[in-house]
Design a protein around this nucleic acid. Structure first.
Lengths: 344, 344
DNA sequence: TTGTACGCGTTATCAC
DNA sequence: GTGATAACGCGTACAA
């Protein structure tokens, strides 16, 4: 038995297909009784519209593309980061009846822009979500904008007032984490910076300085190190920092991977965590809980951010484009085992 | 400027649209010269077929659905596991001009079967890939089979000779790992079993026993523990195992998460790894390399498996369904820091 | 408020 | 080998 079509529904309900279409698409100008009749027919036949036919007729697919940096590549965000975003986007898409297409891509590749445009031209998605750090790269962003397809960028670091984008309050919550460390008695709090192309990550450094000031502590460039978001760079920075005569008693890292690197070095050097050294990260990737001791970190609401972005795109496809603004979803501190009172 | 259509190509090449269609779909019965003309026109116009129109007319989408257990749920496989599969499937899909739809689902949910059928009916994918442990659950598998959509199951544990499926040589490579541990001088090699619903995981236990026999070691039920694939269960089993008077000098776990749990307990108990205890896992999820010491494990070729499954589905959509067989892709041992010579 | 008729860009069935 | 022409299932001016 073939799937029921809109015609089947129409004849069963005794109306025209246009009316069915109106009901299905929640358009106005349908009488209550008519709507009920149609909905009953839909239920009876288990009708659901054919997406291909819809797309063909409307020139737009009920589909959202999630673009992010390829985890197979160098310096890529970790798997948990991606899975979280996917989850959020999927959840929002499902309740809206949209599908999610994932599109990891390597920004080091010459053809990323062209590939992206080709994809967009082919599938005609209702919208595109671009994750950090891709969301801050002109090459990527401009290529997408050229297609005129609706696009929401994640964690761009700062809004420009001209478009809708979604971010978290990195700076504020990083300041909060710094104050938290200070409240534990730490006075030498080091910081490991992350990838500079990732603006949201550099916001965390600003937050660190804010927190220092708020806690009445002095900023010292000598206990700030330059990482690149990878575990390896976390190890390198840790070795440098921990070899100093005035060794910091706490290290705050711009992401969890680097914090994991610091933890590795501490374990190797026989430095007790959190007894002699407190470590804090950012992102709350699943690794954070799997380490021993489990990492104190900042939970970035990636899932909620992706869901919010998806929703905005879905609404846009339905004729309600979001107002230009930077939507901020607050992160929160997760205190676990890697932080404790400062040693005497 | 709107996208070129098949009509544009046809008129530019001076042929009918049916001929263009033949060329695009690589059908026979087209003269060499005609084909060239058409291909030139296609190149000149940068033409690419509209997927929605194709799907509508052919009743099938150029799309593959990847179904796996929801990572948000209890006992779920880790993020790295999923990302790996996605990567493999995506790679194969891209070169074939197909898209990948991801569909995490929670098998504990009452409606998984119905939801799956609804999805399949809606998008009409060219095929479906079902990952373990879902691939071994009748509820899921039967629901998909009822739709008649082509389906390839991953890691079903054993082939039934009636269908095409893809797996790895869990048993053989687990035996190899056991022999490897034995070759390091270990004579008390414990094993932590995994989720029983995951057949491929239980194959590893069989491999363990094979390896023991091959190494001339005796099997003892007393140093085998029952885990459930989670980190927590790894910890529980480890505490039991490590408290025994005849403490094992090596613990081989049916997956990496449980091995991570064992490592946590060892660290907590002050047992040196690998000096006093060797630990080995299975799967080579990214966590394995991030731990300290990094985990010796078995690399499961998930990416290659997913790619192979995708390819089979794509071929099937093109009229070349794969022969019924269990396609086996070999795994390999990754020796890292968590294993070493047995203590005296 | 509701319906008619056409178009969307393919594939597929025939006839030539 | 090649080409009209009818589906495919839905959206949408436009008419009623």
């Amino acid at each position: 038995m073939p799937r029921p079509t809109i015609d089947d529904v129409a004849s069963l309900a005794g109306v025209s297909i246009k009316t069915v279409s109106r009901v299905v698409n929640r358009e106005p100008n349908v009488r209550e009784v008519t709507r009920d009749k149609v909905e009953k027919a839909i239920a009876e036949l288990h009708y659901s519209p054919n997406p291909s036919a819809r797309n063909l007729a409307s020139h737009r697919a009920r589909l959202i593309v999630l673009v992010y940096d390829d985890p197979g590549a160098y310096q890529a965000p970790s798997a948990g980061y991606i899975i979280n975003m996917q989850q959020g986007a999927l959840k929002a898409c499902r309740t809206a009846g949209f599908e999610l297409l994932i599109h990891p891509c390597n920004y080091r590749n010459r053809n990323v822009g062209k590939d992206l445009q080709e994809l967009i031209g082919r599938v005609r998605p209702a919208g595109i979500i671009v994750a950090a750090p891709l969301s801050n790269m002109p090459k990527i962003v401009n290529a997408i904008k050229a297609t005129k397809a609706p696009c929401v960028r994640l964690s761009t670091g700062s809004g420009n007032g001209k478009e809708y984008s979604v971010a978290t309050n990195d700076r504020e919550v990083s300041a909060e984490m710094t104050r938290f460390l200070a409240s534990l008695g730490h006075r030498h709090i080091a910081f490991i910076k992350g990838n500079k192309r990732h603006k949201a990550v550099s916001n965390r450094f600003d937050g660190y300085r804010d927190g220092l000031k708020q806690a009445g502590l002095e900023y010292s460039e000598s206990i700030v190190a330059d990482g690149d978001n990878s575990i390896g760079s976390g190890e390198e920075c840790a070795e440098k920092l921990l070899r100093r005569p005035d060794r910091p008693t706490a290290i705050f890292c711009a992401n969890d991977d680097m914090a994991a690197g610091v933890l590795r070095v501490a374990t190797r050097l026989g430095i007790d965590v959190p007894g002699q050294l407190s470590i804090a990260g950012c992102d709350d990737i699943s690794l954070a809980q799997q380490l021993y001791p489990a990492l104190t970190t900042i939970r970035q609401p990636l899932s909620a951010m992706a869901a919010t972005a998806s929703l905005a795109l879905v609404d846009g496809a339905r004729g309600n484009p979001p107002k230009p603004k930077l939507e901020t979803i607050p992160g929160s501190i997760q205190v676990r085992e890697s932080t404790g009172p400062a040693p005497k």
